[in-house]
Simulated assay, not measured.
Amino acid sequence: MINLAILISGRGSNMEAILKSIKKNRIPVNPSVVISNKADARGIKIAQKLGVKTEVLESQGIKGPSWDYDKKIVSVLEKYDVTPKNGLVCLAGFMRIMSPEFIRYFKTRIMNIHPAILPSFPGLHSQKQAVEYGVKYSGCTVHFADEGVDTGPIIIQAVVKVKDDDTEETLAKRILSKEHKIYPEAVKLFAQGRIKTVGRKAIIS
């Protein structure tokens, strides 16, 4: 069985969606640990209430990608038997860019979710970009993390219609409800061994 680790920085609503799906036996994975880089992240208590072990690795003052910091994450992952052979790492609002070394170590075993239809609007404030650009549709994307910013193989996407009177906040809220559906689905597909990567494509069988 796949051992799952989820990395958070805040409330971790996508983490909660994944963990609740596991609890309902919808995803055949073992939720091994939730790691936060902030001691006051609200998601820590949510994970604990759902019966999942938690660890805090403060990253305050560490700017940019850092293999020295990420090595500490690897140590915690190893402690909970989340390895490149049997593990999956899900980034759920984890406000740090992973180092290239970490990405290579867990190649095609790190998932991320982004509130836009990639490759459009990568990076921060995607919903704001979508509203300002005047697109008619936006949405969210679950993808494997690679060494770029939101550039890894795309696993699942969901579409949200953008209304003429949408603000960044109203659009973000509707996109988030879709995120809570497709992220657990992507984890399930991975756990079932149904995702194969070929070049930059993630192919679902």
Rank of each mutant, 00 (worst) to 15 (best):
G43R: 14
G43W: 07
I44K: 01
I44R: 03
K45R: 14
K45H: 11
K45F: 03
I46Q: 01
A47R: 05
Q48A: 13
Q48K: 14
Q48E: 15
Q48C: 02
K49I: 00
G51C: 03
V52A: 08
K53G: 00
T54A: 06
T54V: 14
V56G: 04
L57D: 09
L57P: 01
E58P: 11
Q60E: 14
I62H: 00
G64E: 05
P65S: 07
W67G: 02
W67E: 15
D68A: 15
D68T: 14
Y69N: 04
D70L: 06
D70M: 06
K71C: 13
K71Y: 03
K72G: 05
I73Y: 02
I73M: 13
V74W: 05
V74C: 05
V74M: 09
S75G: 06
S75P: 01
V76I: 15
L77N: 07
L77I: 14
E78T: 11
D81V: 11
T83Y: 06
T83Q: 05
P84C: 07
P84H: 02
G87Q: 07
L88C: 12
L88P: 13
L88M: 13
L88W: 12
V89Q: 05
C90H: 07
L91D: 01
A92L: 13
A92S: 15
A92R: 10
A92E: 03
M95E: 02
M95Q: 04
R96E: 05
P100L: 12
P100G: 11
E101D: 13
E101V: 09
E101C: 07
E101I: 07
F102L: 15
R104M: 09
Y105H: 15
F106C: 11
F106Y: 15
